[in-house]
């Protein structure tokens, strides 16, 4: 990911904490890494329940065009989201999926692919299903290498509801370590 502008799409269903993932990534890159990050999201009836998506543009300089057109990275957290948005993912991009919620059979994936059972890990390894988005943030950090682990952990700590910091940092580390394992590090 040497390009100056990196477009990321995160999508799933309402209640998975998709927007918060975008928020954590954007905050880590802009506030804690000192660069620029623009987060946009769908509003209105389509944002309540059903499919939910957040878009983050990362850039060393000011982000001019704020929206994601052809993402470099696509994090799919539901089958519906995968089907809807996969076609726009760059051919040489990165696909990250919640492997127990997205079935890739019958689809020829040309991009780099990373898979994690984030929801199960949140339940089994963290003990709180709701932390699945932060598990995914950790995994995302490890496999993309875009943002430092330190900056992401700070962003998690700064974003989650007070009193849940420790739990969420644990969730982050679970995802991060699994990502390193997948990379063979």
């Amino acid at each position: 990911m040497a390009a100056d502008r990196v477009e990321i799409r995160l999508a799933g269903f309402g209640g998975q904490g998709i927007i918060m993932m975008g928020y954590v990534i954007g905050k880590a890159y802009s506030i804690f890494e000192g660069y620029e990050a623009t987060l946009t999201q769908s509003f209105g009836p389509e944002a309540r329940g059903g499919a939910c998506s957040a878009q983050v543009v990362l850039s060393k300089d000011k982000v001019l065009y704020p929206y994601v057109v052809q993402p470099d990275i696509f994090v799919a957290m539901s089958q519906e989201a995968f089907t809807k948005y996969y076609p726009t993912l760059k051919k040489d991009g990165i696909l990250i999926i919640e492997e127990e919620l997205v079935d890739l059979s019958g689809v020829d994936i040309t991009q780099k692919l990373f898979k994690i059972p984030a929801t199960r890990f949140a339940e089994e390894k963290v003990g709180r299903r709701l932390t699945l988005n932060i598990v995914m943030c950790g995994f995302f950090t490890a496999v993309t290498g875009l943002i430092s682990r330190d900056a992401m952990r700070k962003a998690v700590e700064d974003t989650v509801p007070s009193g849940t910091e420790e739990l969420n940092l644990k969730a982050f580390d679970v995802g991060y370590e699994y990502g390193q394992q997948v990379l063979g590090k």
């Binding site: 928020y23 954007g26 620029e36 990050a37 623009t38 987060l39 946009t40 999201q41 509003f43 982000v63």
Partner: peptide, 8 residues
């Protein structure tokens, strides 16, 4: 767009 975009 400006109202709902999140930035630093």
């Amino acid at each position: 767009c400006v109202g709902h975009m999140t930035e630093k």
